[in-house]
């Protein structure tokens, strides 16, 4: 069981991701903005971070950069979530230190597989 944090300002996506990952046996915390995500990252031990790129205030990219810049969280796996129309963000995401990305609309099954693959890679 992994501890996963999902940050997305869209309640539908947040609930869907949380539901699927809990169903897959993970412990999930959901927040709706970048600031709250960063606070959680600093306060709680986590195994994986799922970040929506476009969030009001602090974006997913900003959170990712902050996570990578702090030695204690630098190795935390980060998966970015972005809309199909904003695929240009993917490159910026990798530059910010993200490990993988998921494009909306996505299949919950694919999301679960990506999370599992990422956690397996980290375990090795």
């Amino acid at each position: 069981m992994a501890r996963v944090l999902i940050a997305d300002d869209d309640a539908d996506i947040r609930d869907l991701v949380a539901f699927k990952l809990v169903q897959s046996g993970h412990q999930v915390t959901a927040v709706e903005d970048g600031m709250a995500a960063l606070r959680m990252v600093r306060e709680q031990p986590l195994d994986l971070l799922l970040l929506d790129i476009r969030m009001p205030g602090m974006s997913g990219l900003d959170v990712c950069r902050e996570v990578r810049s702090a030695p204690e969280t630098a190795s935390l796996p980060v998966i970015l979530i972005t809309a199909r129309s904003q695929e240009g963000d993917i490159e910026l995401g990798f530059a910010a230190g993200a490990d993988d990305y998921i494009i909306k609309p996505f299949s919950p099954r694919e999301l679960s597989s990506r999370v599992t693959a990422m956690l397996t890679r980290v375990d090795r």
Binding site: D10, D12, I13, L16, P105, F106, S107, P108, E110
Partner: peptide, 15 residues
């Protein structure tokens, strides 16, 4: 409204 919104957010079997 949630079902309609979800149509644009999920793909594959879920959609």
């Amino acid at each position: 409204p949630t079902v309609a919104a979800m149509l644009g957010k999920v793909s594959g079997r879920a959609r």
